[in-house]
């Protein structure tokens, strides 16, 4: 554990908790990250089910799901007219809305808040899209750091295979077509997603990610997720 001294020379053991105590955060924040098709949504959904089954107050917040922003984002995507900066700011607005109205108040109320994608998605995507990394980090500086960040690591081909088994083709922005990486949408997807993976990999240590092998079967992954959860958060209930 990190040890830092405050001004009066007393040792503070965990910097993360200082900020939380100020706001009396009683709840826990658990988030999942990974590229599309990494299986993270399935896993956070199962974690949510497990908590609810055990009567734990839980709330799941998904990326790009704010009532007031998501229609605009999807309209902009359809028209393919979103520049990286606008794209980034719309997602930040979406995040802020969910954060101010759900995530933060529920954490204060003692909920376990689960988030399917969090600030690291923005860090990774927006940096790959060409926004300034420092700008992005400061933009999201109002967000609390999660108690656990699960990162689902999968090779690009497996992720693509999973996406394409559910629908016929890749979408413009998820393939990074706005970046002119390649005229071929599959090639563009591969380059774009590989760059996002690169960004995620860089954050593993600095942002304290818990890496889960996303190629394992669903049950095994969930077992690992729950194990980690119980090691960090006191949990009395059945498995």
């Amino acid at each position: 554990m990190r040890q830092i001294k405050n001004r009066s020379g007393n040792i503070i053991t965990n910097t993360k908790n200082i900020k939380k105590d100020k706001y009396e955060i009683k709840g826990k924040l658990i988030i999942v990250e990974g590229i599309d098709g990494s299986g993270k949504s399935t896993q956070i959904h199962l974690l949510d089910k497990w908590l609810r089954f055990n009567n734990k107050p839980a709330f799941l917040s998904e990326w790009n799901s704010s009532e007031i922003v998501k229609n605009i984002t999807s309209r902009g995507k359809k028209k393919e007219q979103l520049t990286p900066t606008t794209f980034s700011l719309l997602h930040a607005t979406d995040f802020a809305d969910r954060y101010e109205r759900n995530i933060f108040p529920l954490l204060r109320a003692g909920y376990t808040v689960l988030a399917d994608r969090y600030i690291y998605t923005a860090y990774a995507r927006d940096i790959v899209r060409g926004c300034n990394p420092l700008w992005i980090k400061k933009l999201y500086s109002f967000a609390l750091k999660p108690d656990i960040t699960f990162y689902f690591r999968v090779p690009v081909d497996i992720a693509a295979g999973r996406i394409l088994s559910g629908r016929p083709k890749l979408k413009y922005y998820e393939a990074g077509m706005d970046l002119n990486l390649s005229n071929d949408i599959y090639e563009s997807y591969r380059i774009f997603q590989s760059r996002i993976i690169e960004q995620y990999e860089k954050m593993i240590t600095s942002e304290n990610f818990t890496v889960i092998d996303g190629t394992l079967n669903i049950e095994k992954q969930q077992e690992l997720v729950r194990e980690k959860f119980k090691s960090v958060i006191s949990f009395d209930g059945e498995n």
């Binding site: 007031i68 700011l89 607005t93 109205r101």
Partner: peptide
């Protein structure tokens, strides 16, 4: 792209301060 969404959210009194700030920033960026 964005202005209508801001008007609607304001009418419905849904905007918190940070969200409002970022929404206007997105409008400006566009």
């Amino acid at each position: 792209l964005i202005s209508e969404g801001i008007v609607e959210a304001k009418e419905r009194h849904l905007l918190r301060k940070r969200t409002m700030s970022l929404f206007y920033a997105a409008d400006f960026a566009d």
